[in-house]
Amino acid sequence: MGNGVKKFMYVNRRAPYGTIYALEGLEVVLIGAAFDQDVCMAFVDDGVFQLQKGQDTAESNMKNFSPTYRALGDYDVNKLYVEKESLEQRGMSEDDLLALTYEDEDDDYKEKPSIRIVNREELADLMEQQDIILNY
C-alpha cells in the first residue's frame, strides 16, 4: 500500500433496472474515481447483465444508465473484470457486451478495451489482492 493508495474492488452481482443497486453502485465508482485510489470492478452472476449492449428504456420509462459505463474510462476506471463462468451460465459471450475502452496514457494514449474476461481462479486471485471489496 504505497502512498496511501488502496485497492478498491466493486463487485456487481445484480442485473440493472430490476433493482437500483447497479445504478447506485455505479455512482459510488464515479465519485470514488476522484480519490485517486486503485479501482477495479468485477461483474459476477447477474451483474454481467449490466454490461449487455443495446439497452433501451424508452418504453419502460426508466433512466437508461448504460451509457454511463462508457464514461468509466475517462475516470481512469479501466479494469472491468467479467467472470467467464457467469457469462457462460447466461448463454452470453464478450460479443454481447458494451465495447468499453480507455486511452492508455502510458502507451501513447492508445485506445484499449476496459473489459477483461477472467475465469473464476483469476477472479479469486484478484479479490485476494484488494484492500476494500464492496459488493452490490
Binding site: R13, V44, D45, E83, E85, R120, L123, A124, D125, M127, E128
Partner: peptide, 12 residues
C-alpha cells in the same frame, strides 16, 4: 439465492 454458491466458487 445463489450467494452461497458464488461464495464457494470464488473463495480461495
Amino acid at each position: 439465492k445463489n450467494s452461497l454458491d458464488t461464495c464457494l466458487r470464488l473463495a480461495k
